[in-house]
Design a protein around this nucleic acid. Structure first.
Lengths: 200, 200
DNA sequence: CGTTGTTTTGACCACTTGGTCAAATGCAAG
DNA sequence: CTTGCATTTGACCAAGTGGTCAAAACAACG
């Protein structure tokens, strides 16, 4: 019988996860330090370790929370509605995710860049299954002549690549664009790109 | 009057840079350790520091070498030749770069992810200037009706994003594709994508 | 061979790192 | 107020970190 968390527990655990997200997403697992995270969370290091037993456990907690929310948009892509609009809507949803959750995007990017030691199994099973399933739907649309015949896997990669680019390479995008806001232009471009590509 | 490097110097410096590239590209600057690099280079740590005075100096040497080769393809894009083919050729060149130099791509990605502390100035000046210049060429093509009217900056971002994705997210791409080779399909997809997008 | 400059190394150092622990503090309910 | 639990902390530790240094091993050349 597990006890319900106290108010303090709820607050501090949330603070730690947010601080961990800040630090891990910028420096990766190995580059992050507990002192940094403790500082960012406004707690002492021993206090931090009172709530999470180890550095690893904070990272794991973040990755688990991330996985669900990260794959949700793709799960939402189903056979109902106009195929071209469905795919564009999916891409727009992913772009919004990049804009609203850039730290999460970078945490993911860091994990993959480092060889995905902690989630490689999940990628090979859960992610592959999900992508193959959605690729089959897209392939069926192509076979029915409802969209242009393009490789569904690379189509999905291109959506991931483009949308996550704005979160992961944020500094570079802003350095190049100067004052211009990135996401409005990206959204328009994305619309045109996939409308033209998928038009049967 | 600087002396020419001995054979041993040439060999060891190259070994260190290659080892540094391996380690920095996987773990980022902070996550990498001199012991790792020394191991990978087959040298002792003090020996490594005989050739480079500090961890930072290895990293800097790598970034400098990278900058040139990384921007070369974009520099090569000029006004001669068929506009659509020019842009597609640029994208293909970048894809080849990702396939042949994935470590360099990941080193860049790591640097940007960490906020580009060491190259932010270069991004704001050299990179922005170069991109703005090429964007102007593309914009002129659009105004002449030679290609479709799309935002040149986001067009360039999309090329970077898509091509670098195959190097930076290699583990994920391979996990999803299984046995299939990534780059052939990517090349075909890329061709279709930009041909359709840019067709006036 | 010996001499001279290059390369390599073992021992070492100060500092940082992830993590522990006992003791101190805060706090809520009886 | 006090009892009991949740929370916080200072002191500490072993291992790892970037980096130094003097001495040893090596290479080249006359």
């Amino acid at each position: 019988m597990t006890k319900p968390p106290t108010r303090i527990q709820t607050r501090n655990r949330a603070a730690i996860l947010s601080a961990g997200l800040d630090v891990f997403s910028q420096f990766g697992f190995r580059g992050a330090t507990l002192d940094q995270i403790a500082d960012a969370a406004g707690l002492s290091k021993p206090n931090l370790l009172y709530y999470f037993p180890s550095k690893e456990s904070i990272h794991t907690a973040l990755l688990e929370r991330l996985l669900d929310t990260w794959l949700d948009p793709l799960k939402a892509l189903d056979g109902t509605g106009d195929p071209v609009q469905e795919i564009i809507a999916y891409a727009q949803r992913k772009l919004t995710l990049s804009r609203d959750y850039p730290r999460e995007s970078r945490l993911w990017a860091n994990e993959i860049l480092q060889g995905a030691p902690r989630i490689e199994d999940t990628l090979r099973t859960d992610l592959k299954t999900l992508v193959d399933e959605k690729a089959a739907i897209i392939k069926a649309w192509a076979n029915d002549g409802k969209i242009a015949d393009v490789d569904p896997h690379h189509l999905i990669f291109s959506i991931w690549a483009f949308t996550q680019h704005y979160a992961d390479f944020d500094v570079q995008v802003r350095a190049v664009l100067g004052e211009k806001a990135p996401y409005d232009g990206a959204s328009v471009f994305l619309d045109t790109l996939y409308a033209k590509l998928l038009q049967p």
